[in-house]
């Protein structure tokens, strides 16, 4: 029996009269990666937000299981590691202070973000507002993996990263999958991704 599993069935979501997701389904288990592909505006980010518990679907259901136990929506939201382009951090706080805040909120030692920040080559003392778009993406990676989640949801995971950043991010993803985690990765282009166990193509 897999340690972790994520399944979604018949998910639909509309914004006013615009149907963004229409009865989409998929599943992924420990060690696997579920790839979501589709052009801009096809609903990839909406799907990931529904899977993270940040957006309630109009129809359908999401089932996340860890250690044989189904997670409630609130619990799922707090346990997933989500990387999304619209996640931002506090302008007035430095990289290390933002990660310290996240660590405290997640019940981790305040300094627990230091190792991942160093690995990602983040400038610890620089405030969020002074980070380049690539460094911001690296901080989003640090935020997503800081608490070692079983379920990693990646929306355009390598956006804005340079070669070095993408190499580190891919290494983090490989380690996550090797350690029994599972991932859902969404991208408008066909990215070479490891251990793809399922795929969903969305149309606009």
């Amino acid at each position: 029996m897999p340690v972790a599993r994520l399944a979604f069935e018949g998910l639909s979501r509309r914004f006013d009269r615009l149907v963004v997701l229409d009865r989409v389904s998929g599943k992924v288990e420990s060690g696997g990666l579920f790839a979501v592909r589709g052009p801009n505006g096809s609903g990839k980010s909406t799907l990931l937000r529904c899977l993270a518990g940040l957006l309630a679907p109009d129809r359908g259901r999401v089932v996340a299981v860890e250690d044989g136990r189904a997670l409630a929506n609130d619990e799922r939201r707090r346990r997933v590691g989500l990387l999304a382009p619209d996640i931002a951090f506090y302008d007035e706080l430095s990289v290390s202070e933002n990660l310290e805040l996240v660590a405290r909120l997640r019940g981790l030692p305040p300094a627990s973000g230091r190792a991942v920040a160093e690995r990602l080559g983040l400038p610890a003392a620089r405030p969020w507002r002074a980070l380049s778009s690539g460094m911001r993406q690296r901080l989003r990676w640090a935020f997503a993996v800081l608490h070692r989640p079983r379920l990693l949801l990646l929306d355009e995971p390598f956006q804005n990263l340079d070669d070095d950043g993408e190499r580190i991010a891919r290494a983090l993803l490989d380690e996550h999958l090797e350690n029994g985690g599972l991932a859902v990765a969404a991208s408008p282009v066909s990215l070479p991704l490891p251990r793809i166990s399922g795929e969903l193509r969305l149309d606009r």
Binding site: R78, A88, F89, Y90, L105
Partner: peptide
């Protein structure tokens, strides 16, 4: 407005 609410929603209890 600054999208930091998502960080709080994901990491902290309401």
């Amino acid at each position: 407005e600054s999208h930091t609410a998502t960080v709080l929603r994901l990491a902290a209890r309401p």
